[in-house]
Write a protein that binds this DNA or RNA. Structure first.
Length: 768
DNA sequence: GAGTTTGAAACT
DNA sequence: CAGTTTCAAACTC
């Protein structure tokens, strides 16, 4: 997108960089600025990672947005400074060092507006990161410029806007707007600066600002006022911004009105319409490519969080549920410990005082979302790529159609999930630092309250959710004694915090007990490094080192450890293999196995690309069919025979959690089957959380998914992306139907996928 | 909704 | 590593 502003920006930027103050700042800051981002538009997976900083503060002053908007609108204008100054005062009031925290100069990695009390929240994420490095506080102008550049240059590969709707929006509280900014700079340098500020303003103001912004700068990033649905709508419709990509998932979070509207617009396309729209609008070839063809790649590259958007955690701030992305956290910590100057923007935001003061806090690009990847990278680059990929995939999946269907019920869920992932990192760090963020606390309390209120009728909730159309992919545990700190707890096992729908008692699996959760998790991992790994492992790439038994177990995926069923004949969900939609394997110690997805003895083999339900044994079929008839799984059949085990549901939680649900709960194993399994790299584990429901992809994201998924499965992906999934026994397995299903022509011809054998407790983990 | 069944997880 | 207990989901009524 070439906009007039672009040139202006560039020039202004240059000036800025040349200015004495800038130099001075640079001299003070360890961070080395990369000359104004120049848009090289390389989609480096690592580069993309953006760590959004999350900063929430209830109060605010009213300028925030205006400032922001102005900045983005016309960075080069001097007024910005003044505007900033104003904001600064406000921010300072809030206890935040504006200059430090809010460093406009920093590219905007992610911007989110959160209106705690408002009906809606909007999070805008610019996954793309600016390469411009502006670590110094005084570079206000720079930020604007950078931002602009990002947009105009198309450096920002995508902009995701995630609006959140709060149920209590009706209350019309004073609008507290929270703006988060995070940006990545200097990809190679890995410096990320996050700026955060809080502003409080009236809706009207926001709305007008938003609208004006849109109208004035269609090309620029759209920072909107969360509340205004209208604004949102406008954005969506207009989203012309090449760099702007709406995250379907996000959409689900829109206020009801908006959702409906949006739904109308996008329903037919399975939630992808907005993407398409964006694509159409994109003038920038690069962007276009990204959207149309590279979206997948982008996702892959940028999203490293399995369950949820890891990366942009901030982005998902609005979600209550948080994924426990321990790995990421660990990685992040590791990096921190190592003394790298890769501090998360989150930290900055969280700790206002620190923000400005420590320039070192800049985050290395990619840390946010790609933290895992980065951490892993050192160990295994290829693996990292895979990881990223899968997360990206999930992101795509996000756009859940389901959400649209039952926005009310699901919104919150999605919400929570997102938050989870997003906030996990941040929170973890906070915990580490001993800093409990007000935001977190508030969130936690909020959802705790919800939880408590709902605990009275857990089942009702569950049913309600289930009825909501399987829309809810989130896990809802019902733990009574485990405190949700053991693997018994599905939430905990899935790496997510318990949320409102859970009916657990004495739950410790909440952000407020993050330290406990982490400690517990660590303990469990010490016992079994793969404890949190996906239970079902799937592979995409044929690996030579196939085990002997591969022949007997053609399935594309297998349960990590195998089941131990005695009475269920592996025909009920008691059986983890069955639940995960995979056949039993040699690893299983089951008795009387009749697993419809494949028997231990190999009698029931699922062909590649074939619906697993196809049983060779008639008797088994009957049993299976009977079972299916009773379960939600059946639902999938119609829509997507290939993905029998999965339920069509909701795209919404895809990022987040288990999108599947039979009865609202997805077979856990599926998670693995999805991207996560693919992610399994042989490092300890890659986020268990990430789930990619095949059917969802197929169904809703076909346009995108087809290109993407198949590649992964096919092994077409670059070597680096090769998935090294392993099954304990090195089994050869056929590709999961789900994914295959996405492949036109059935994947019969598809190549066989082989699971690499993994040491039972692989070297995966070098634990820190 | 309550009770039972089941098998994984945890414990010994 | 095997046996037992605990636990919560899955299932049945």
């Amino acid at each position: 997108m070439d906009t007039p502003e672009k040139s202006q920006i560039s020039s202004s930027l240059s000036k800025f960089e040349d200015s004495p103050i800038f130099k001075y700042i640079n001299s003070l800051s360890p961070i080395k600025p990369v000359k104004s981002m120049h848009v090289t538009q390389t989609f480096n997976p690592l580069s993309f990672a953006s760590l959004p900083s999350i900063f929430t503060s209830p109060h605010v002053s009213s300028h925030k947005e205006s400032r922001f908007l102005k900045c983005s609108t016309d960075p080069s204008k001097p007024e910005l400074s003044s505007a900033d100054g104003t904001k600064v005062s406000t921010i300072q009031e809030a206890g935040v060092d504006v200059q430090e925290n809010f460093d406009p100069g920093v590219s905007l990695g992610v911007v989110s507006f959160e209106l705690p009390n408002e009906p809606s929240r909007i999070a805008i994420e610019l996954p793309q990161t600016l390469k411009y490095d502006c670590g110094s506080p005084d570079c206000d102008p720079a930020p604007c410029v950078i931002e602009t550049n990002c947009v105009s240059e198309s450096t920002c590969t995508s902009l995701a806007i995630v609006p959140f709707v709060q149920e209590d929006s009706q209350k019309g509280l004073s609008d507290g707007v929270e703006v988060q900014e995070s940006s990545e700079k200097g990809l190679s340098d890995g410096v990320e600066v996050a700026a955060t500020f809080q502003i409080e303003r009236k809706r009207e103001t926001l709305g007008s600002d938003w609208e004006s912004l849109i109208s004035e700068t269609s090309d620029l990033l759209i920072f909107n006022s969360p509340n205004n649905s209208e604004a949102f709508r406008g954005v969506i419709q207009k989203s012309l911004d090449p760099g702007t990509t709406f995250c379907p998932t996000s959409i689900s979070q829109f206020p009801q009105d908006d959702i409906n509207d949006y739904k109308d617009q996008t329903e037919g396309t399975g939630g992808l319409s907005e993407i398409n729209h964006v694509n159409e609008s994109f003038e920038d070839d690069n962007v276009t490519n990204f959207v149309s063809g590279s979206l997948t790649d982008y996702m892959e590259n940028h999203m490293s969080v399995p369950y949820s958007f890891k990366p942009g955690s901030n982005l998902h701030r609005g979600f209550r549920r948080r994924c426990l992305d321990f790995e990421m956290v660990a990685a992040r910590r590791k990096s921190l410990d190592s003394g790298s100057n890769t501090n998360s923007s989150i930290d900055n935001k969280l700790e206002p005082g620190k923000v400005g003061g420590d320039s070192s806090r800049c985050i290395v690009p990619g840390i946010g979302l790609h933290l895992n990847a980065l951490a892993i990278a050192s160990r295994d680059n290829s693996n990292m790529k895979l990881d990223t990929l899968s997360s990206g995939t999930q992101k795509l999946i996000l756009p859940c159609s389901t959400t649209f269907n039952s926005p009310a019920a699901d919104q919150e869920i999605a919400h929570e999930s997102f938050l989870a992932s997003a906030s996990t990192e941040r929170e973890t760090d906070d915990v580490k630092n001993g800093v409990q963020l007000a935001e977190d606390a508030s969130q936690a309390s909020t959802y705790l309250a919800n939880e408590e209120s709902n605990q009275n009728s857990p089942k009702k909730k569950r049913r309600r959710l289930e009825q909501a159309g399987e829309s809810d992919a989130c896990k809802r545990c019902n733990c009574k004694k485990s405190k949700c700190l053991k693997l018994y707890c599905e939430c905990f096992a899935a790496g997510v915090y318990c949320i409102e729908p859970c009916s657990c008692q004495d739950c410790f699996n909440k952000p407020i007990h993050e330290d406990t959760v982490l400690a517990t998790r660590k303990q469990i991992e010490s016992r079994n490094p793969l404890a949190f790994a996906p239970k079902v492992i799937r592979t995409s790439d044929p690996i030579p080192e196939v085990g002997d038994d591969s022949i007997t177990t053609p399935a594309s995926a297998r349960h990590k450890r195998g089941c131990n069923c005695k009475k269920s004949n592996c025909l009920k969900k008691y059986c983890e293999c069955f639940q995960g939609g995979v056949g039993c394997s040699i690893n299983c110690r089951c008795e009387g196995c009749k697993n419809a997805f494949g028997r231990k003895d190999g009698s029931a083999i699922v062909e590649v690309g074939e619906p697993e339900e196809e049983e060779t044994d008639p008797s088994d079929n009957n049993a299976t069919n009977t079972y299916f008839e009773k379960t939600d799984i059946l639902n999938n059949e119609e829509q997507n025979p290939a993905a029998l085990p999965t339920t069509p549901l909701q795209l919404c939680r895809p990022l987040v959690q288990l999108p599947f649900s039979s009865k609202g709960k997805p077979p856990r194993s599926f998670i693995a089957i999805g991207s996560s399994s693919a992610l399994y790299t042989g490092h300890r584990y890659l986020k268990p959380n990430i789930i990619r429901p095949p059917n969802i992809i197929e169904k809703h994201l076909q346009s995108v998914a087809e290109d993407e998924t198949p590649e992964i499965l096919r092994g077409n992906s670059s070597p680096g992306t090769g998935i090294k999934t392993s099954s304990p026994n090195s089994k050869r397995i056929s590709p999961p139907q789900c994914e295959l299903g996405s492949t036109p022509g059935g994947g019969r011809s598809g190549r066989k996928l082989i699971l690499q054998s993994i040491p039972s407790f692989p070297s995966l983990t070098p634990k820190h």
